[in-house]
Nucleic acid binder design. Structure first.
Lengths: 245, 245
DNA sequence: ACCGCAATATTATAATATAAATACGATTAT
DNA sequence: ATAATCGTATTTATATTATAATATTGCGGT
């Protein structure tokens, strides 16, 4: 149980285990999360270590505890979904197209706005990062760079260029979304090649300080990705709905 | 030091103290955060308790620790600003108009999009909540309800009606933003009263399923709030810039 | 000057004891 | 019979202490 793959120490390893178990719905009313003492036995760890792991998860809104009542899982609405760890656990083990769609709906709001801000406030360094990302995408188009990573670099550059700390916070989420969306829109290549031009349109507008154009271009870009996801989602739902068709 | 006002127990109380100290910039290169042993002395708490508090803060991206290297504050870019606690600490003790503006810029992206989604997907219960919030605002207009709380109820209702878990996550943030923005736009009772009509426009569009109209109405609403904030911000910046004028 | 090793500081883990909080049940009074 | 109160048991909260692991720093040798 204490493989310690990630985070390198027992506390983090246990927090990851329990965190994953919680978000994947292992615990329920019939199967509540065990008390501190039992958990520490289960993981073969001391109580202090286990308590630290539990405290980390309460800090992320997943757990709560009281004397005599024990430890319990918070309702899902209380989970801090925007915490990178929580989101990672959720997507890693319970990947669902529905979640990815919800996620992309948030990106559809955030990234065009970030592009608009970026067009107004981006400095030299941020513009350089943006240009570099576009060049990487063009290189990827020729097979000289990684399409996914260059794509991520572009979206991150836009968010950073907004010079807004809250948008900048979302870089991790966009990166996560893109990494997972590749599972869905697997053929990346055909779609991606065409979209380099669209990405460049965003970049050009930001570099030229054209706020509205930048926002609109970004909106189209993500809207198109969302459209494909929804189509796929509907198809797979139809397959499940009529298994013998 | 162990007043235990919030969270009721020592661990949370210490996490709050240290968390607040971190985000308000108490610790720096010259004044690094003390090591575990010294911190536990400082707060008069046992080491396990202090370690739990530190682990909660590492879970929120504020701290990191290694054997022999000690404990250190993570760079600001690493802080989980979207964590309600972190944001609360930041605004409570280091309230700045700049931060509120950045925050509202995010709302300007998110809430119109949520309104658009809501117009398409809101169910009966969500629509009822929305109508109730509008009625509360109208009551507040007559002095029969609290203007701030009814305003919050409205924005929360829209986010919830989007039926998107990530938008729903942001209800706490919008509530926080509104509570703090009243400090700034406090004397603008006139503006507030007039805006009930604008809020109702959003609500009507959502209830009628008019997505684009709902989004546009919400965008205008927040854009106006943002405009006022920026004006104030510029004014106070000017005052500071020319103290003897 | 550079490489390696040892000393040392600090967190990580463990074991254990005591205190506080609270849910539940029993008992008593109305 | 029902409600209220009190006691008991369970679980987390806090404290103490010891040992292990880890990584930095400096020293010493080459």
């Amino acid at each position: 149980m204490n493989t310690r793959v990630r985070g390198q120490n027992l506390t983090y390893s246990i927090a990851n285990h329990i965190g994953t178990a919680i978000v994947t719905g292992v615990y329920s009313k019939d199967n509540p999360i065990p008390i501190e003492a039992d958990l520490s036995k289960e993981f073969g760890a001391s109580r202090p270590v286990l308590r630290e792991a539990v405290k980390m998860l309460t800090a992320k809104g997943l757990l709560s505890a009281r004397p005599r009542r024990g430890t319990w899982v918070q309702p899902e609405s209380h989970w801090n979904l925007l915490d990178p760890d929580v989101l990672g656990w959720l997507l890693q083990r319970k990947f669902s197209t529905a979640l990815l769609i919800e996620f992309t709906e948030l990106r559809l709001a955030v990234e065009p706005a970030a592009a608009m801000l970026a067009a107004r406030t981006a400095g030299a360094a941020e513009k350089a990062a943006l240009s570099a990302a576009i060049e990487r995408m063009q290189a990827a188009e020729r097979g000289d760079d990684d399409p996914l990573e260059s794509d991520i670099a572009f979206h991150v550059a836009v968010l950073q260029a907004s010079r807004n700390r809250f948008y900048a916070q979302l870089t991790g989420f966009t990166a996560t979304a893109l990494r997972f969306s590749i599972r869905m829109t697997n053929r990346y290549k055909g779609v991606r090649l065409a979209s380099v031009a669209v990405h460049k349109k965003v970049s050009d507008a930001i570099l030229a300080g054209k706020s509205a154009a930048a926002g609109e271009a970004m909106r189209r870009l993500i809207q198109e990705a969302l459209r494909i996801m929804k189509k796929r989602h509907a198809e797979s739902a139809a397959r499940k709905g009529t298994p013998e068709a």
